[in-house]
Design a protein around this nucleic acid. Structure first.
Length: 420
DNA sequence: TCTGGGGTCCTAGGACCC
DNA sequence: TCTGGGGTCCTAGGACCC
């Protein structure tokens, strides 16, 4: 059996930890740049704020219902997430952290009574020790556990647990699950399935495997098996090494100044290099992209990306930065209002497996010591104190975050103060 | 005025090779 | 009358996830 533990409305729950008066009130957390609603309390869902709704489109509604708004505070959410994961890991031998607010738990070799009792204890402990409400779904496969989790939230919100163990329990929840509520079926596939007369998860069981394979690739075939209770998804207990690393942001305002855009891009490139070093990887190629705002139909549009191969795998900031700047010069065009740019490093290898090109004059090991010193210093100071000239200092392009809460758990100057 | 960011996996089709 | 066939590697793009 597999259990999926999922934190309820995670970002909202994190904010409520430090502002308990927001319990029972409508709360939303916005995406970067204060763009869209990406987390909503139950009260906010009830008044019709949908996932991903741009905040400016529902501004009247937010005001009318006195919805409390937060900008995303990932420093805070990451730190709370770590606490939750550490706590639940004590209950099982193995767990797979699937996202910031979800983990799959391996519950094989446990009987039904044992599973239920562990889930109840775990849920209680997370609530008491950390203050985050979680829901738990249990079933034979990851996909069924995901469905069970949703069913628990919908059908038993105060108990928060659903174990789909007997055939009847599985059928009951499948019958109550729409096609689009299934993990792995998005907009396109639900349209396709609806068109063919399939509307709920139980009906999926009637579809021939070959049809799934032909119309939804092997992923569809695997999904069907998972729904039938045959595991088709691998466990990933280890902390997987990422295969691509991306840093991109929208600018706070549309930009026309080339120097400013270059400065933003330099920071994103430096960030990619840092992330590479943190996971012990080096990249062999990089994509740099630049774009205008596609929602502004009144403005000329431009999107361009370029894929650059390196002479040898690299993860030092000067090399990554140099390639990014070279790419930027190729794709930049004057005369547009730019919204966003980004850097994706890919073709990653372990940094100890770097093969140097016989003919390249540069060798990035030379800068190794300096980079290491820079990382250590920045790490100690908790910010990017040591920087390259191209990165600038002003960050005039930085994103909007008008509703940011404090970093209560990671900055001594921002801890919660209580007057007594 | 205002629409996120960071990932994964799979497939079709082109380039190239013998 | 009538243009081989089979294999690999790579890339772009589409689907999905939180």
């Amino acid at each position: 059996m597999v259990a999926l533990v999922d934190c309820n409305n995670f970002y909202v729950s994190c904010e409520r930890l430090f502002q308990p008066s927001l319990q029972g009130k409508p709360v939303i957390v916005l995406s970067n740049n204060d763009g869209c609603a990406i987390a909503r309390s139950e009260e906010a869902k009830a008044i019709g704020i949908n996932m991903g709704t741009p905040a400016f489109m529902v501004r009247d509604q937010l005001k009318q219902h006195n919805v409390k708004i937060f900008s995303s505070n990932y420093t805070l959410y990451d730190s709370i997430s770590k606490r939750v994961m550490t706590l639940i890991s004590e209950f099982v031998e193995q767990l797979e952290i699937y996202s910031i607010d979800e983990a799959f738990l391996d519950m094989s070799n446990m009987d039904k009574i044992g599973i239920i009792s562990i889930c109840e204890k775990m849920r209680k402990k997370v609530k008491e020790h950390i203050g985050i409400p979680v829901s738990i779904g249990v079933a034979k496969t990851k996909t069924l556990a995901k469905i069970a989790n949703k069913y628990a939230k919908k059908k038993f919100p105060s108990y928060g647990i659903y174990a789909a163990i007997t055939d009847e329990q599985v059928r009951e929840m499948l019958a109550a699950t729409d096609i689009e509520g299934i993990w792995g079926i998005g907009k396109q596939y639900s349209l396709l399935l609806n068109k063919n007369g399939f509307n709920n998860a139980l009906q999926l069981l009637e579809i021939p495997e070959a049809w799934m394979r032909n119309n939804m690739t092997v992923q569809g075939q695997r999904l069907l098996n998972e729904i039938k209770g045959i595991p088709a998804k691998q466990w990933e207990f280890e902390n997987e090494i990422k295969k691509n690393i991306c840093t991109s942001r929208s600018f706070g305002d549309l930009l026309t100044d080339k120097d400013l855009i270059r400065e933003a891009l330099s920071n994103y490139a430096a960030n990619c290099a840092l992330k590479l070093r943190q996971q012990g990887s080096a990249a062999r190629s990089m994509i740099v992209f630049l774009q205008t705002n596609p929602h502004r139909s009144d403005q000329k549009q431009y999107f361009r990306s370029i894929n650059i191969r390196f002479d040898f795998a690299a993860n030092d900031t000067p090399t990554i930065l140099a390639y990014a700047l070279k790419a930027f010069e190729i794709i930049y065009r004057q005369g547009f209002y730019y919204l966003k740019c980004g850097v994706i490093v890919q073709n990653l290898v372990g940094e100890n497996d770097i093969q140097f090109n016989l003919f390249s004059e540069k060798n990035n090991l030379k800068s190794g010591k300096a980079i290491k010193a820079m990382d250590e210093l920045n790490n100690k100071r908790g910010r990017d104190l040591v920087r390259f000239a191209r990165q600038g200092f002003e960050k005039k392009y930085r994103l909007r975050a008008d509703h940011l809460s404090q970093r209560y758990t990671t900055r001594i100057s921002e801890v919660l103060k209580i007057n007594i």
